[in-house]
Amino acid sequence: MTDRIQKIVAELPDLADVTGVWAVADDRLAQGDADFVADLGIALAEAYGEDTGEMWQYKSVYGHLLRLLATTAGRQNVIQALRLVSPVRSGGTKLDRYTASLLAAGHPADDLAVAFTGKAAEELRACLVHELVLRDIVVTETPGIAEWATSPHWRDHPLGWLPLTLSDVEDHPSMPSYSAGGGSHPMPYGPGESRDTAIVASTGGPTARETTTEAAATAMAMAVANWVEESNGHIEARVFDFAEPLDARSVPSALPALGLECLNGTGSKTALSVSACAPTRVWQLLYSAASTGGAYSSGAQGAYGRLAAWQSLAGLSCTPDGASFREVEARVEECSWHVFDADTHWFHRVAWDIGVAGVAPDHRRLAVLAATDTD
């Protein structure tokens, strides 16, 4: 450890402003000294990483060092970013997911092949494969990555259920962008997002019998679970069976007749807006909710966000448990889909609001997922 690094480590807890430390790292990397940046991060992690508590200085500096290496072009920076995170296991899976997202956004696939040799964590590799898939990289044809991605040894991993190419339903997902200073991502949901093509529904729709089970509700809510577990959100996930077939034109009148908490109060004064949509639209909503998180949750990042979105779609399409990805995909494409929006007290109407309804292929089952969060 150099004297400069020792001094930074010793003084860090007393700093009221860490931008000076950021600047030191920026300057050293600009001079081509990626090793210094990684060495500093490793030294900080050894000193403060296991029990940071409320030590914001460590969190801020370590995050900046990781983003700096992961978003600056050059294979050597990839190598040093991987070295930086390899001894830091207190961050666990979350750190692996975040690092994979950063690297996939900041470097070409050829440079990322180094992650599949040496001591990189298997979890980071699994996440990195699907972060690249989400960016439409053909990992099965990328030297250095293809052999690992297609090997059978990780097929029992949760992410092994997903295909190594994007499906038609996924189309081209919106991905986050990063810099050393932070990141940003699109938000395809929120109050009023469906009103441009909305049907204003009236009450008095067809009657139904609720058939929600705990397992079904859990499956449908997978994509938005982090809104509740790590933030201030709440969720309503319910399933209803109809005695008579339910066509697309009946959904706007069926929804307010179901006794949904999220739609309590809709009627003559509070309109319910419902729009038919393609399954791609629903997947995008669920993927963004899962990958980027809610008001105070950081989300699961791309790889696990992709998995959670499909788990929710499997639940909303009432696909039997244990189905393969292709079976879920086929079922999703056979369903008819709607998004809805209502100015009720249940929805916080800040920035994080989702209303999705899926009608099964036999038109006798309707699954509903609503979620909202606030800061």
Results as ranks from 00 to 15, higher is better:
S250V: 10
L286E: 10
Q6G: 09
V133H: 02
D14H: 02
S151W: 01
Y48R: 11
R125N: 13
P158S: 06
P361D: 14
S291C: 03
D168P: 02
L29F: 00
L263I: 04
A45Q: 10
Q76N: 14
D353T: 04
L316F: 02
N226P: 07
F325P: 05
S86F: 04
R4P: 05
A357I: 03
E141R: 08
G183K: 04
S324E: 09
Y304P: 06
Q57E: 14
T52E: 15
A217N: 10
H338D: 13
T207E: 15
E50F: 02
A70T: 08
T117R: 07
P186A: 13
G204A: 12
F347H: 09
L164M: 10
Y58N: 15
W310F: 04
E123T: 10
L134F: 05
L369Y: 01
A121E: 14
D26V: 03
L286G: 05
L272R: 02
L68W: 00
D35F: 00
Q284I: 03
Y189F: 02
T93Q: 06
G20A: 09
Y48L: 07
V21D: 07
D321F: 01
M220W: 06
D39H: 03
H363Y: 06
T140H: 08
G299I: 03
E261F: 00
T140I: 09
S194A: 14
G259K: 10
N264W: 06
D241L: 13
A300P: 07
W154I: 05
L166R: 00
G53T: 10
W346K: 09
T203E: 15
T213Y: 08
T140L: 13
T270P: 09
H130N: 10
T72F: 00
V18Y: 03
P361N: 12
G144N: 05
L272P: 03
D51R: 13
G181I: 00
L95Q: 07
Q80L: 08
R249H: 11
R349Q: 15
E333L: 07
V339Q: 09
K7I: 13
A323C: 09
S250N: 15
H363I: 08
M222S: 14
A100C: 12
T165S: 14
D343Y: 03
W283D: 11
D51W: 04
L366F: 03
T213C: 14
F325N: 06
E131D: 15
A290P: 02
A10H: 03
R135A: 12
Q311V: 07
G293R: 05
K7L: 14
L164T: 11
A290R: 05
A257S: 15
W227R: 10
